[in-house]
Nucleic acid binder design. Structure first.
Lengths: 239, 239
DNA sequence: ATGCTATACTTGTTTAAACAAGTCAATAGG
DNA sequence: CCTATTGACTTGTTTAAACAAGTATAGCAT
């Protein structure tokens, strides 16, 4: 199921993160990598282009593929790629806890449909959750899930991980995720649930998630404590 | 020079943005697109995967390629992809102006090297600029350029567009750009140059730019007025 | 020493083909 | 009427080959 190129990608990624190929070094040539992984050049190139897209390396016409990766000093909470709160927390060695502060069904009217991207009349489940890391309230997640697809949601699932439920029990795979990052002023609700201190702004991530057949299953507004928010991204010109 | 797949990508992108293939519609099958553009399937697939990576469409195994794009209500200033301040301003129909508030050579010491990614001892040019859109000061850009590559910089170039200078006069092509978005408290300097009103936070974009041979030529801290900042992104699982 | 060229590398683009695997509707069999 | 199967579509993965184009070096001619 997982393609061969994914294995090559993982092997090279681990080599790079492990320092086998340090910053500014060149990877072995495509030809050599073909032999190492015994595959066609296109397959190696596909793995390489995945590394390029994620900012690990940059390929230089006529010369080779150079490493751009350097281990980064991470802030406490780090958002990147498609990853769930639980996964991110685990990767950063934090103890995550979730408090469900709203849990009710809802039907998308015209204005909500325009805002969220769900078709008008869609049955939704509205879940608001406060995310705590090491006991500190850092994120207020306001989710809308499509109730006819993400069925039988309970408060217990919301407290654990809805993502795990979607991809595990329901066997759905979230493939595409569109995000928008803005900075917004703190509302009374933000102050009620998050420990903002004297900050008057938050980092807000608005996102839509789509499953493999292209239907949107989630719309989320994620309101982050500014001190614990960082988003990393690599842009490459020409795909 | 520009690959054939880029032309196909542009044609499809324009069709999608122009509403020929609206939200949730399916594109013609790869086979049909091959005939329309008279090329091999791989070439069509490459164009499609570029559309997927940018969130225009999502491909569904066994069914087809479905449009995810919907015209978005944009905030006044929008950062996405690799794009210069000047380009972005033009795309959003704003009159851009730049005020240079600092312009001096600098050599990277150990701590600056660690922070910026330049090798220690690199000769740099430090340029701080205030970006005004329609007369309103919105962004404070603090750039460091590698002086031995981005040569002969002048205040005049800094006031116009350093990017245009780099890619035009110097014939260098910026290929990769790594960015990090955070929210930070406003400093006295921010208040001095930007019209922040009673906001006490800014959106901060820290970025490194690399040219085609893999050397880093730029380190930038871009401090944005929170009301005029938005960043959009599409993440796709599996490349 | 200088400068040119041939050459052997590198990555970039495109074509072609074969097979795997998911979707869907028509159809045959119960 | 319902179910199972077939077949024709779709996208997904991999291999193979040819050529274009950038880079660097060895070596030759000036």
């Amino acid at each position: 199921m997982a393609g061969k190129f994914e294995g090559i990608y993982e092997a090279l990624r681990e080599d790079i993160e492990g320092g086998v190929y340090p910053y500014q070094a060149f990877l072995p040539s495509e030809h050599v990598l073909c032999e190492r992984f015994s595959c066609a050049r296109n397959t190696v190139r596909r793995a390489l282009s995945a590394l390029v897209a994620r900012g690990y390396v940059q390929s230089i016409h006529g010369k080779g593929v150079r490493v751009l990766y350097r281990p980064s000093v991470q802030r406490s909470f780090f958002v990147g790629g498609i990853e769930t709160f639980t996964e991110t927390a685990a990767r950063n060695h934090f103890k995550a806890r979730t408090r469900v502060v709203r849990f009710e069904p809802l039907v998308a009217d015209a204005s909500l449909a325009a805002k969220t991207g769900f078709p008008e009349g869609t049955a939704l489940m509205a879940i608001d959750r406060v995310r705590l890391l090491d006991g500190v309230a850092l994120i207020l997640d306001k989710n809308l899930f499509r109730a006819d697809i993400v069925t039988d949601l309970t408060r217990e699932i919301a407290e654990a991980s809805v993502y795990a439920y979607i991809e595990g029990k329901l066997q759905l795979r979230i493939v595409t995720s569109k995000r928008r990052i803005t900075v917004e002023r703190a509302t009374r609700e933000d102050r009620e649930f998050l420990e903002l201190g004297d900050y008057d702004c938050l980092a807000v991530v608005t996102s839509q998630a789509f499953i493999a057949d292209g239907t949107q299953v989630e719309y989320t507004i994620s309101r982050h404590h500014p001190e614990r928010f960082a988003f990393e991204d690599t842009a490459v010109r020409g795909v």
